[in-house]
Nucleic acid binder design. Structure first.
Length: 163
DNA sequence: GCCAACGTTGGC
DNA sequence: GCCAACGTTGGC
């Protein structure tokens, strides 16, 4: 189904695996967001994300975890090849090439935040109290409202006080 | 390293 | 289809 207008997302990555610096150092500052092994996150990647959608890149499993920067979706979702690689940590022996389970999508990093504000500080902000990140904390791809996206951008740029 | 939250698996 | 056991995520 066609839609107009861009959407906003928060995507988690472990900086020890793939940080925003790693993405910025990649060709075209773009990485294929692979290794997602959660069906809800998979559905967002496969069915809802479109080129031009804006992304908050979030560093999870960090000390502390924090917002890291901004990205933009490039291209379309495609079959995640890591599911077929027995040497890959995200290998899925129940997935077949005839009926693949997992999908990836391109994300180009466009900005690294000057203020990598931690989840603990974000939790203090009443304007962000509804953020899904605090509730469905395990979901690695989450939709964001434009209001929340804009707030996170201004916080990351240091344009907004966080305490 | 601990452990709460929660998604997945599998026996019935 | 229920639900207990198990595994993973991820904050702390």
């Amino acid at each position: 189904m066609k839609r107009t207008g861009i959407r906003y997302w928060l995507m988690k990555t472990e900086p020890s695996v793939c940080s925003i610096d790693d993405i910025l150092a990649s060709v075209q500052q773009t990485t294929q967001w692979d290794g997602v092994r959660n069906y809800q996150a998979r559905n967002y990647i496969r069915d809802s994300m479109r080129e031009g959608d804006q992304v908050i890149i979030y560093h999870s499993n960090a000390l502390p975890s924090h917002i890291a920067g901004i990205g933009v979706v490039v291209g379309e979702s495609s079959i995640d090849p890591t599911q077929f690689d027995p040497n890959h940590s995200a290998f899925d022996d129940k997935s077949t090439r005839e009926d693949p389970r997992w999908y990836q999508i391109g994300v180009q990093a466009t900005e690294k935040f000057t203020n990598m504000v931690s989840i603990g500080e974000l939790r203090q902000l009443p304007s962000l109290s509804e953020l899904e990140l605090f509730r469905a904390s395990r979901l690695s791809v989450q939709p964001l409202s434009k209001r929340h996206f804009d707030l996170l951008v201004s916080i990351g740029r240091g344009e907004r006080k966080t305490r």
